[in-house]
Simulated scan of single mutants.
Amino acid sequence: MKIELENVRPMDIEKRSFEIITQELKESGKEIDEKLAPIIKRVIHTTADFEFADLLAFSDDVVEKTMEAIKNGAIIVTDTKMAMAGINKKVIHKYGGDVYCFISDDDVAKEAKERGVTRASVSMEKAAKMGKDVIFAIGNAPTALVRLYEMINEGKVDPKLIIGVPVGFVNVVQSKELIMDTNVPYIIAKGRKGGSTIAACICNAILYMMDETRGM
Rank of each mutant, 00 (worst) to 15 (best):
D61K: 07
A57D: 15
D60R: 08
M67P: 00
K35Y: 11
I40M: 09
T66P: 04
I32E: 03
A48W: 11
I70N: 00
I21R: 01
F58Q: 10
A53H: 03
E34W: 06
M82Q: 10
I44W: 05
L25S: 05
A48P: 00
E51Q: 12
K65I: 10
E24M: 12
D60I: 06
D60F: 12
L55K: 08
D61M: 05
F52W: 02
K41G: 01
E19Y: 09
D60S: 11
N72T: 02
I20D: 08
I76W: 07
S28I: 01
R42T: 08
T80D: 10
M82H: 13
H45W: 14
G29M: 06
F52V: 00
A74N: 02
V63K: 11
A53S: 09
K41A: 00
D33Y: 11
F52K: 07
I76F: 12
E34Q: 11
I75G: 03
T22G: 11
I39R: 02
I21M: 02
E19W: 05
T46P: 03
E27W: 05
I39L: 05
T22A: 13
V63M: 07
K41F: 12
E24C: 07
E34P: 08
M82E: 13
T66A: 07
D49P: 02
E68G: 12
V62Q: 13
L55V: 00
E27G: 09
K26N: 12
V77N: 14
G29V: 04
T46M: 14
G29A: 04
T46C: 15
T46Q: 14
I70K: 00
T78Y: 06
L56S: 08
D79Y: 02
S28W: 13
T46L: 09
L36D: 09
A69P: 02
